[in-house]
Nucleic acid binder design. Structure first.
Lengths: 345, 345
DNA sequence: TTGAAAGCGATACCAG
DNA sequence: CTGGTATCGCTTTCAA
């Protein structure tokens, strides 16, 4: 492996000059620049990032910790992050923690050892103290956090409350009153926000809240399947099911089809996320779209901004971003049957 | 950020001793060991990998280049790779190249700069010369390669030919003769193997090869959809469709349903890969399972083995592994209608 | 504009 | 068993 020294020798200039050329400093004569570039090509020189990193104390790499790469939501987010990072000359370590706090902690440690310049924690599970420790060593951006956090932190969330409201509003416009809600595991803020929106919505519309219409799943398709099965067995069953994510909505549709009911004629289904599968299943799923790619992109951009501040020594206060959602109307939502229309009167 | 020097001072020992403790060398007195460990804890010391990497010329990290993280096949592979790497104390850089040769080349460069110990190229597009250059600098494992490659390379493929044969055999056992085949883009070895298997199968069973039954898709669901649409418009349409991947099979099912036909009663569909979605769609897709997770795992293990050889200076010849496939029988395949049974006689 | 030299933080060798 | 020290490849003063 040729080093800069070899390049310098080959080009007949000094080490410093090679460095200046490589870093694009204008303070090099054209003649020397060409000689160096020539030598670089000839030797197939590749700079050693470890050495640079050691000297500059910056590795030009970021860490991205996500809960579950098996959920199609996250690869999309990761791709957004990766693209944004690459554009800025950074690489990213993708860490899949399987929603396991231990694993997450472990990865953080590894990332810190790798000397990453910053870390993005999606659905972080580490404690406040640990976050503070991380921030002492590198930049930190929190995505989809549970609970409140000091305003000095950089945070990005998606507007779960608003998105759920919009989704429920759509069902309401289609005449649905008996709307069931399949929630995700309530440990996470986003799950709670969605559930809160459901409850608030019923209050605002003065609809009775029947607790039997609220089911608790765990974001995998099978839990959607079982929750829906219970819902369908009720004597006065719902005319619409709002699931907290698409995977559960798809599981619910499966349960519905197995009971030989038609979607959306007999019952409407609405999901959340807009994963690829939502457009692929049949009927195609009407859903609340989360800006997945943009989320990844925005977190990296926010992190990069933070790194600038840190380098400049400014202690800019934390940014708090909330990304909006859209409704994607497809086939799985239709008008409620008349017979159910008067339920509430 | 505390360094080993700080730890040494805090513990009242020398730098060398700290290093020995950190690396678990037995040549340290218990007393000193404890003093050092105490100091490490107190200072929250985290070793700097860049420095270590510079000295040892090993970064304890690997690069994994995949074609498309949006295809659910690859996250699964990536997870297998990551788990195996982590177990051995390695981290992995995930690089998504969007099936773009330029991007892939770029990533290879970045990985080399990062001083990764090895690179796994899935569906590599780089030239032979470039591969050789990579091998000069670090370990290299090729997964799912196109065409032949020198036997000194480490290669892992999945048994596409055999898997396709098994799948077609199943359809045959269910009485299907008029089997259509939707291929992927033929630039890749795996696609070609699957198509070759189809042709061979027809020869072996002495079935006529009707070229209109062979469609060429591009591995995304929409191409499966359009190919199937054409197939269904034929006067003497197929009784079964074998798609080269699940995404296309699912697209095909969509086309079939839109024509109000029943699966598998009117037509059977078979996929390839066994992505999560295959169990989720309805009817559930019968498919040829690829060992995705195992593929990632095996590539890392092979790479690690190669790294051992390299370190030891041995030039062990390349390993060539072919992973087997399974048939996953679900709902989308059924018996062919009698009327078609005699087609071939 | 260029070159020489001092480190960055760890490892590993060798003398004690 | 321990401590001192050269070294990895690069960046970054500082003098020439």
């Amino acid at each position: 492996m040729p080093t800069m020294k070899d390049v310098a020798r080959e080009a007949g200039v000094s080490l410093g000059t090679v460095s200046n050329v490589l870093n694009g400093l204008p303070t090099v004569s054209n003649e020397n620049r060409e000689k160096v570039e020539e030598a670089v090509r000839k030797l197939k020189f590749i700079p050693n990032t470890a050495a640079r990193s050691l000297k500059t104390n910056s590795s030009k790499s970021l860490g991205l910790s996500i809960p579950n790469i098996g959920n199609p939501f996250y690869p999309e987010l990761a791709r957004g992050a990766e693209d944004a990072a690459q554009k800025a000359g950074y690489s990213v370590f993708l860490c899949n923690n399987d929603r396991n706090a231990e694993k997450e902690k472990n990865y953080v440690r590894v990332l810190l050892e790798k000397n990453v310049d910053g870390i993005i924690l999606v659905k972080p599970q580490v404690s406040m103290e640990e976050m503070d420790e991380i921030r002492e060593k590198c930049g930190l951006v929190l995505v989809d956090i549970d609970g409140e956090v000091h305003e000095s932190y950089d945070v990005i969330n998606v507007d779960d409350f608003g998105g759920t409201m919009k989704g429920l509003e759509l069902l309401y416009e289609y005449g649905h009153i008996r709307i069931a809600f399949i929630s995700g595991s309530l440990e996470s803020r986003s799950s709670r926000s969605r559930l809160e929106a459901y409850i608030r919505f019923r209050e605002e519309k003065s609809l009775p809240v029947d607790d039997r219409f609220i089911k608790r799943g765990s974001y995998d398709w099978y839990s959607g399947y079982t929750c829906a099965t219970e819902l369908l067995r009720m004597v006065n069953r719902p005319t619409a099911i709002f699931a907290s994510n698409d995977l559960m909505a798809i599981g619910a549709m499966k349960a519905i089809r197995e009971r030989r009911m038609d979607i959306p004629h007999d019952i409407s289904v609405m999901g959340y996320d807009d994963i690829d599968m939502a457009a692929l299943c049949s009927p195609q799923l009407t859903t609340v779209r989360q800006p997945k790619y943009e989320l990844g992109q925005a977190s990296v951009e926010m992190l990069l901004k933070r790194l600038c501040f840190r380098k400049a020594g400014v202690n800019e206060k934390g940014e708090h971003l909330v990304l909006p959602t859209d409704i994607i109307f497809r086939e799985s939502v239709g008008y409620a049957e008349r017979e159910n229309g008067g339920e509430n009167s």
